[in-house]
Each structure stands twice: as structure tokens, then as C-alpha cells.
Amino acid sequence: MFCAVSTMTDGDYDYLIKLLALGDSGVGKTTFLYRYTDNKFNPKFITTVGIDFREKRVVYTATNSNGTTGKTFKVHLQLWDTAGQERFRSLTTAFFRDAMGFLLMFDLTSQQSFLNVRNWMSQLQANAYCENPDIVLVGNKADLADQREVQEKQAKELADKYGIPYFETSAATGSEVDKAVITLLDLVMKRMEQCVDKPAQEAPNGEGTSKLEAAPPNEKKCAC
């Protein structure tokens, strides 16, 4: 569905999509994004100061409603990286409002980072552009199997509770990294379409699913 494009310095793209990674300090946000944009791993731990971002261009192929592939678009991704530390909190959360989708990360080798996911969720709810933004839950450092503290089942349950996708990734090996980002991008792309098409079909009672049956049966009939 996606593939990377090399040149990035021009305005030749169809969408600018801004995603943001959040989660406790040390869970691997910076390393994860570096893996995604550059496909490299850096074992050193350098604390992110406040905020940072990386960029990548990908080609997005839309899927039609019947499942066939449709048009392709160039997407310029701006991937915001945030510092997890408390002292940067006011700064980083301020950036939440400009992002269209979120990678909520925790460290599979740290139970505490998993417990904090709930707090990050409420931060998102308060600061993101809407009440229910597109989020992907990411359990990182899957390669450190022997140090694992969070079980897949546990994390999956939490993700289901929020109704968001869950991925176990490793920035060290690159496993599932692309998939997590792509899934989020796909959600955002779908959201855009929904947002612009919604006003025309929004039922006043808010019952979105019944609107198809409610459509006038004689739609095709000529009015003249």
C-alpha cells in the first residue's frame, strides 16, 4: 500500500500528514521514528529535548469501497517526536493539537510505562484536535523477549477497550514498525474523507448507520 519516495525538498506532494509519538521517556519513541524514516537503529539513549520531528515521503494507494486499489497519492509525513519527561509536559502537550494521528508508545519491558498509557490517553483527550483522534497503541522493544513485563493479551485488551489497533514493534530489528505507522496513516486518510463528506449525510438524530435506508427512493428520477 505504501512505498517510500526519495526526494523531499519540494512541494510536490498531495498531503501533509502530521503524526505524533507520545509515551513515557525511554520507551523508544525517538529510536522508533528514526527506524521508520531512515531504517536504522541507534542504541544510544539521548533524551529528546522538548520536541523534535522527522519527515518521510510515502506513496499512498487508496482502496475503493469495493476493495480494489484506487488512485495513488504522495504523502509527506511530518512525524513529531516528544519528550516523555514531566518537565517538558506543558510544551509537548501543546503540540498535540496540531497532530492528525498519534502513536501512543510504551516499553514492553516496563510495566510502569504500560500503566502510564491511561494517563497519556487522557492527555490526548484533553489536548488533541478532537475527542476521539486516531491512535495506534505501540508496545516497543519486542526484541527483548527475556525482559518482557507486559503480556500481549494485556495490551491487546487495553487497545480493544479504547477501540484502537495494537502493534508489538522493535525499533532494534524494525519489526512491525512500518506497519504501525502505515495503519495510523490509513486511519487518518479515511478520517479525512469522512470529515469532508459527513455534513451532507449527517442525520440530525446522529444515527449514522440508518442514513442509507433513509435516502429517498426516487433519487434518480428527473426533476423536470
Partner: peptide, 20 residues
């Protein structure tokens, strides 16, 4: 119009304006 609304990120600003 619809295309521009999506591609320019206008959709996002509109959504956000509902909340903030």
C-alpha cells in the same frame, strides 16, 4: 472544493475548531 478541503488540511482545522 472537496479535494482542496482534504488536501489542504482544511478538514483538520474545521474539526479542531469544533473543539477549540
Amino acid at each position: 472544493y472537496r479535494e482542496v478541503k482534504i488536501k489542504s488540511g482544511e478538514w483538520f482545522l474545521e474539526e479542531r475548531a469544533k473543539k477549540f
